[in-house]
Structure formats: C-alpha cells, structure tokens
Amino acid sequence: MSDLEDSSQPRLAAGCRWVGEGENRTLVYPEGALRLQETARAILDRCDGQHTFDQIVHELAVAYNASDPSKIRQDAVAFLERLRQKRLVDF
C-alpha cells in the first residue's frame, strides 16, 4: 500500500458517488452514506484522479485563505487515509 504523496492523484473509489445538491450533498457508497462538512466536501470534489494531492492542498489553502497551509495538509492526509481505509478513495 503506497502512502499519500504530493504527486498522488486521489479519486473516488468505484461505486462511490454524490447524491443530492448543495449542502445536502451526500457521499453514497456500497453500504452507507456520509454527509460531510464543507471542507471535507471541498477536498473530495478535487479527488477526480486529475488533481495531485499537492494541488488539492494548495487550492484549499487559497480558497479558505489559510494562514497555515501545513495544518490543511495534515488534516487532508488524515482524512484521505481514513477514507481509503473504508475503500471510498483510491490513490
């Protein structure tokens, strides 16, 4: 199993997709569903298999005007690792 690196291109796993609109958007997967906070949605919206992890962190830092991008990086790593364990995200 490879670690999440700057060049990794995370994407939603097969059978994992959004249902609903706006704030009610829910991530649905084989045996469950997750309603996520805005920042979590912002991360997953960029998990399209195109964005690299570094780009995702960078875009988030800009979008949320973060004074400390390393905190965003840390949170994003933990979040994506957790979702990979649940087999919701591949990278």
Partner: peptide
C-alpha cells in the same frame, strides 16, 4: 468465477 472476471474491471463497486 467467470462472472467475477467480467465484473472486476468495471467502475462498479464489487463486493
């Protein structure tokens, strides 16, 4: 076993 081989290369979640 044949069916599993057909399924596994698609974008459909496979359990």
């Amino acid at each position: 076993l044949e069916v599993a081989a057909i399924i596994r290369h698609s974008r459909v979640a496979f359990t």
